[in-house]
Nucleic acid binder design. Structure first.
Length: 563
RNA sequence: GCGCCCGUAGCUCAGCUGGAUAGAGUGUCUGACUACGAAUCAGAAGGUCGCAGGUUCGAUUCCUGUCGGGCGCACCA
């Protein structure tokens, strides 16, 4: 039952406004004593040439009370509706129990392909906290879209091409420690990469050697290609550990190397459309009409650049997936780059360039000097992940030493705390990371919500079987009603998260639900209540558990059964 | 110099397309475990929404300017 729709229908006959518009305007009053839904009359005032107050009063008088809304009253330009609480609770709890994990889902995106590019790590380079944030955000966005019925394609646009591989191959021949490479591939590859740069300072011919190796790679030299493939395999093996921790998967790893043979066509197209200009020996596309700097397509030595690859990738994706939307989850520092890419696609005549969207996000910064100074200025994601799980294990040892499968729970809770920390705010904001905040399990945190779920499940286990026929009209307290109202608004939060590309909307809403349940939990007995009340409250507990689990799941946070 | 993002309580942040008394969490102080898990709950204190103009019946929200912070501005990605 969609209450907004039902309320809108009541208003619809009396105002000169489309039903959809009415639904859009309906809001939830800031104070609970004002009512459950409100219709603001300010917009009508202009066309009707009457004061909002008058319109509200007249409108309220016309509304007929029924099982949906039992009262409508006019207050300061708003018509406030009071729903029939018993009926509302009954319908909503039933809906959650029937739909289960599909609660809050929709078919808004039915038949539409949405590409979400995220993570996009560089082969042979460290997976740092910035990638971690990016991966969490991208994965959450994908899940939210999927829940809204879109067919999603998760792409990890690997950085697996370019002259740095020539350098790596050159460095490998000179300084590789094979044993270390097998044990800690990224660290070893990063070590020789850094060493290469140090040595190249003294001996510039190394750079020439690296370029020569990359040329061999481009030409498909078997030995060099095999080495490159090995770097890639080893890197992905190590990245896979983090993806497993996060429960993240991809549908495609088509990265830069994948487009190495698809760029000639792009250059050709640009040339045919006379968009390519010469500038200091390089080939550029002028974007002055958009008020942004030109985009470089070919370097002065004729080589391609990442912009060329991004253009090729966009065109390839349109052909392959015929996307409804092509979402790039990439740090906000690259907003100009994507602005240039999308503008260029537009100039090329691709009307679908408007369906490409760059979802930027802030940087991860460290307030704790301890971590940031440890290994230069790069903070490895696996160190953060391991530390979070380690600290969580300590908390478990302290609070619940007899817990079974501690490792599994520590992973879920530790990762939950991290995910929550990274995703709880507006994605544009920089994440100021402190261990104190990230591992504070009180209040606004992943473990807070998980704990609420665990306590509910614990009660359900103690209760045993609940009768099939439960009379939900025994849920009569204000705490229960407020909680159910939040369950009812869950779908809206998913929708808003999709529209704004902001998973935090869902996180915050789920936290509100957890808070409401905790308030209820602390003010009313469940197992010790009279049988009819007990059974109704158990069903409510079950419903809340479903929504919490679903909501947390949408941002990648898992729910343990105990903690 | 130009462009993008940000500026709301001591700290970290919500506040949806302008609308009803600006909200959370944390930290501080106080109270609740012989009821179902206290990783919980209840309460108190804490804000001239960076500043100045403008539009409007009404601005934290929109516009202009200004100050402060972050990030970009071609042969790296």
């Amino acid at each position: 039952m969609d209450y907004k729709l039902e309320i809108a229908k009541k208003i619809n006959g009396f105002v000169d406004m489309e039903l959809d518009k009415v639904i859009e305007l309906i809001e939830i009053p800031p104070q609970t004593n004002m009512g459950d839904y409100a219709f603001p009359c300010f917009q009508l005032a202009k066309v009707m040439r009457k004061s909002p107050n008058m319109i509200a009063i007249e409108l309220a008088e016309k509304i007929i009370a029924d099982d949906i809304a039992e009262k409508a009253e006019a207050v300061g330009g708003y018509v406030n509706f009071f729903v029939n609480k018993k009926e509302y609770i009954k319908l909503m709890v039933q809906e959650v129990l029937e739909k289960g994990e599909r609660f809050g889902s929709s078919e808004d995106g039915k038949g539409k392909n949405v590409i979400v590019e995220f993570s996009s790590v560089n082969v042979a380079k460290p997976f740092h906290v910035g990638h971690l944030f990016n991966t969490m955000l991208g994965s959450a966005l994908e899940k939210v879209y999927k829940h809204s019925g879109y067919n999603t394609i998760r792409i990890n646009h690997l950085g697996d091409w370019g002259t740095q591989f020539g350098k790596l191959i050159s460095a490998h021949k000179r300084w590789i420690n094979e044993e270390a490479l097998e044990r800690e591939p990224i660290s070893e590859l990063f070590r020789i990469y850094v060493k290469f740069h140090e040595e190249a300072e003294k001996d510039p011919t190394l750079e020439d050697e690296a370029r020569a190796y990359f040329r061999k790679l481009e030409e498909g030299d078997p030995e060099v290609t095999a080495l490159w493939q090995r770097f890639k395999d080893l890197s992905l093996r190590e990245f896979g550990e983090i993806y497993r921790m996060l429960n993240v998967e991809f549908d495609s790893y088509a990265g830069e190397s994948f487009y190495s043979d698809k760029m000639d066509e792009v250059v050709q197209m640009l040339r045919e459309k006379k968009l390519l200009k010469d500038s200091n020996g390089a080939k550029i596309v002028d974007l002055e009409q958009f008020n942004i700097p030109p985009i470089m397509i070919l370097k002065s030595d004729g080589a391609t650049i990442y912009a060329t690859r991004d253009l090729a990738a966009a065109i390839y994706r349109k052909r392959t997936y015929d996307f409804y939307k092509n979402i790039y989850v990439v740090g906000g520092t690259q907003s100009l780059h994507f602005n240039q890419i999308f503008s260029t696609l537009g100039l090329m005549g691709f009307e679908w360039s408007k369906d490409c969207v760059h979802i930027g996000h802030g940087l991860v910064k460290f307030a704790d000097k301890k971590l940031s100074t440890r290994k230069g200025d790069v903070v490895f994601a696996k160190d953060v992940v391991n530390e979070a799980i380690h600290k969580t294990t300590e908390v478990i040892e302290h609070k619940n030493p007899n817990l079974e499968n501690k490792e599994e729970v520590a992973r879920k809770v530790g990762m939950g705390a991290l995910l929550y920390t990274f995703l709880k705010n507006n994605r544009d904001k920089d994440v100021v990371f402190t261990w104190e905040d990230a591992l504070n399990f009180d209040g606004d945190s992943g473990p807070y919500v998980q704990y609420t779920y665990v306590r509910g499940q614990s009660i359900l286990k103690k209760a045993g079987n609940i009768p099939d026929t439960v009379d939900l009209s025994y849920l009569t307290t204000e705490e229960e009603f407020q909680m159910v109202k939040l369950l009812g608004a869950f779908k809206d939060s998913v929708k808003e998260a999709v529209e704004r590309y902001e998973p935090f909307v869902v996180i915050r809403h789920v936290t509100e639900i957890a808070k409401a349940y905790n308030k209820f939990y602390n003010s009313h007995p469940i197992l010790n209540a009279e049988d009819n009340v007990k059974n109704a409250r158990l069903q409510l507990t079950k419903a809340v558990g479903i929504v919490i689990q679903t909501g947390l799941g949408l941002v990648g946070i898992e729910t343990p059964e105990n903690m």
